[in-house]
């Protein structure tokens, strides 16, 4: 594995967070997002993947007032400030749900299953949920 050194000399690892669950039915999506922000605050090389129902986390127009939960979809737009720039959405998952990249809250890189498989294989740490 090709660990490189960060600006303060710490080892930087490639962390991939794989989101597979829709946003509000379980706590996984929110918890995973918080973990992403913490990893990013520690200057790790973070990428975030959305497959299966995970793509629903990025759907525009979420309004959670009626269910008494925090709408965390705006936080995906803060990822850029945290230098998390690699957001991948699996094309097949998106299309299977009748969605397009234009309906998502942030710009993402839409990748094929094949491409995603390659990117996943290059990681030091993969955290799926």
């Amino acid at each position: 594995m090709s660990d490189e050194m960060g600006y303060q000399g710490e080892v930087v690892k490639r962390f991939m967070y794989v989101n597979r669950k829709a946003p509000y039915g379980t706590i996984y999506a929110l918890e995973n997002l918080e973990t992403v922000l913490i990893a990013a605050a520690f200057d790790q090389d973070v990428s975030v993947v959305f497959v299966d129902d995970g793509v629903y986390q990025l759907k525009k127009g979420q309004d959670t007032k009626g269910i008494g939960m925090k709408n965390f979809s705006p936080t995906f737009r803060a990822l850029d400030d945290y230098d998390v720039e690699k957001l991948y959405v699996e094309k097949e998952s998106l299309e299977a749900r009748g969605l397009t990249a234009e309906e998502l809250v942030v710009p993402v890189e839409v990748v094929s299953t094949e491409e995603l498989r390659e990117i996943m294989a290059q990681q030091d740490v993969v955290l799926s949920c």
Partner: peptide
């Protein structure tokens, strides 16, 4: 208000 998150210090400085 915009991002639903309190930014980490490095992010705050940058913003």
């Amino acid at each position: 208000e915009e991002y639903q998150i309190a930014p980490a210090v490095r992010v705050l400085i940058k913003a």
